[in-house]
């Protein structure tokens, strides 16, 4: 994706204003949202999503945890069995007609008419939007194509697109108009590392311009860095949500010490004497949960005992560890 100016793509006249004037501080909110499919499967089980305006909300969960089903309910594609959903303060699906033009979406991969070109597919989507201005259709579609780096391939039939090109066209469709909210389901699926980086960059750029982004993924490392908020799904339930640094800071830190092999025993004694428990020894390394002990006390005590410190590191659990601990199954399909 090129670094076409945000201002360029948003040129149809967005004016920024402060949050208090908006229709509400939340871009997405659900209350007890539940979907039981006819098969009897409860794909989404009473979730209460809270996505503040202006946030980049990483919606994470293993395969089959209910992310796409939740997104389908948010967009009015699937009717909830119970519970309610609001987008930008308006109830869904009642307000869909006036509301969804303000929302750009990518749901479960891109999908276009295979025998139309990328450009013609965008034109078709725009023609379907009763609230889109036909006079600016051409310009908006060219801008969206340029923004995702697809201008060169815009005339090719969609069926000839590579996976990454399809994904880019999907993003272009989501960016056909200036949006207040973007709902992107697995936007990096099928993209090469460069493409993944570009998507991250794009998301950050859009967020900086004030667009709220709800982005789902089962590969959290891909989006972790751009998220201000995180929600973790598992087996249809929202296991955890909140600000990212708050969530990652919540875990217990541990200290990892590396020393020379013959001093490992001494080092372990020092750690135990400081009150650290569960010391794990692994070759020349030791690791133990820090508890209330300050890391500098650990280093001082080790040096005082004459232990050669090759390395000392305070480890906080990464989001990935948190994710795996919460969802249990790691990255396996839950059911």
């Amino acid at each position: 994706m090129t670094t076409t100016q945000v201002a360029n793509a948003l040129a149809t006249g967005p004016v920024v204003r402060t949050q208090s004037e908006g229709t509400g501080p939340l871009a997405v909110r659900t209350a007890g949202l539940t979907k039981r499919f006819r098969s009897g499967q409860v794909a989404v089980d009473g979730i209460d999503l809270v996505v503040p305006r202006g946030s980049v909300y990483g919606f994470l969960g293993p395969n089959g945890s209910g992310k796409t089903t939740t997104i389908r309910m948010l967009l009015g594609l699937v009717r909830p069995t119970s519970g309610k959903a609001w987008l930008l303060g308006e109830p869904m699906p009642e307000a869909a007609g006036a509301l969804l033009p303000r929302v750009g979406v990518l749901v479960e991969g891109p999908a276009f008419q295979p025998y139309l070109s990328g450009r013609a597919n965008l034109a078709r989507l725009d023609a379907s939007d009763a609230t889109a201005d036909p006079r600016t259709a051409r310009r908006r579609s060219e801008e969206a194509l340029e923004r995702v780096g697809l201008t060169a391939a815009a005339g090719k039939p969609y069926r000839q697109y590579s996976l990454g090109m399809k994904q880019r066209l999907g993003l272009a469709a989501a960016l056909l108009r200036p949006r207040e909210l973007l709902v992107l389901d697995e936007p990096t699926n099928g993209l090469d590392p460069q493409g993944t980086r570009e998507v991250r960059h794009l998301v950050r750029e859009l967020a900086d311009a004030g667009t709220t982004v709800l982005v789902s993924s089962h590969l959290l490392t891909e989006i972790e860095q751009v998220c201000s908020h995180i929600g973790i799904m598992g087996r249809g339930r929202l296991l955890l949500q909140g600000e990212r640094h708050e969530l990652t800071g919540r875990g217990v830190a541990s200290v990892a010490v590396t020393t020379s092999p013959h001093q490992v025993g001494t080092a372990a004694q020092v750690l135990t004497s400081l009150g650290l428990r569960d010391v794990v020894v692994d070759g020349p390394g030791l690791e133990a949960p820090l508890g209330d002990v300050a890391p500098e006390r650990v280093s001082a005590a080790l040096v005082h005992a004459g232990v050669d410190l090759v390395g000392l590191e305070v480890r906080r659990p990464s989001l990935e560890q948190l994710f795996v601990r919460l969802t249990g199954e790691g990255f396996d399909v839950a059911r």
């Binding site: 006249g13 920024v16 202006g54 007609g97 200036p178 311009a209």
Partner: peptide, 11 residues
């Protein structure tokens, strides 16, 4: 404080 885009005319 995040700026919020003014809702577009959705008529």
């Amino acid at each position: 404080p995040a700026p919020v885009l003014v809702p577009q005319a959705t008529v």
